[in-house]
């Protein structure tokens, strides 16, 4: 996505589209006929030179797995789902982007720093932010009921059984993605 360069034969993995089409949400990738409705309706695409859902769909069809997974622009989708609602072929570009992001985490051990921070807090407390004592006290002053506490053991088990505990421990992170 970042730069236009000639696609070489050996970059194209013809099985990638089949691999993708087994992932929930990405099943209909082969039906994309490049009409461009997704990119036209994508609020991010209006401000980014590189994040274009139509291009991502084509790159998946071409099997450019390595190019896709090494491009941080994948993380610019804001999940507004305009592309999902408007695609005439029900391709669900946002779900394809999600599948690709999940793949980056799993196969390249990489995720945004902010995701690692939120996940770490969630694992510790059930909330994605560490709730400061001052806020909890303030709730009492405001007459609000105490904030429910979660069963942290159960969250730990969910992280573990979905394979995310080890992914989180080993993940390399990045902070910013240029538009």
């Amino acid at each position: 996505m970042t730069e236009s360069k000639t696609i070489k034969n050996d970059e194209m993995n013809p099985n990638f589209k089949y691999e993708m089409s087994k992932i929930p949400g990405a099943e209909r990738i082969m039906l994309c006929y490049q009409c461009g409705t997704c990119t036209a309706d994508c609020p991010i695409s209006r401000f980014s030179d590189f994040y274009k859902p139509r291009r991502i769909a084509r790159m998946v069809q071409f099997g450019l797995k390595d190019r896709l997974l090494s491009d941080d622009h994948l993380w610019l989708c804001s999940t507004c789902y305009a592309c999902v609602d408007h695609c005439p072929q029900n391709v669900e570009p946002a779900s394809i982007v999600r599948a690709l992001r999940n793949m980056v985490v799993k196969e390249r051990n990489k995720m945004p720093l902010v995701s690692r921070e939120l996940a770490t807090s969630l694992l510790k407390s059930g909330y994605i932010y560490a709730m400061p004592e001052s806020r909890l006290k303030r709730r009492v002053e405001q007459g609000l009921p105490p904030l429910p506490k979660t069963n942290v053991k159960e969250i730990e088990r969910i992280f573990k059984v979905t394979g995310f505990t080890s992914l989180l421990e080993n993940a390399k992170t990045f902070e910013k993605v240029a538009k």
Partner: peptide
């Protein structure tokens, strides 16, 4: 929700 982008099953 914040975990969907990193792991859909989670």
């Amino acid at each position: 929700l914040p975990m969907d982008i990193v792991n859909h099953d989670l």
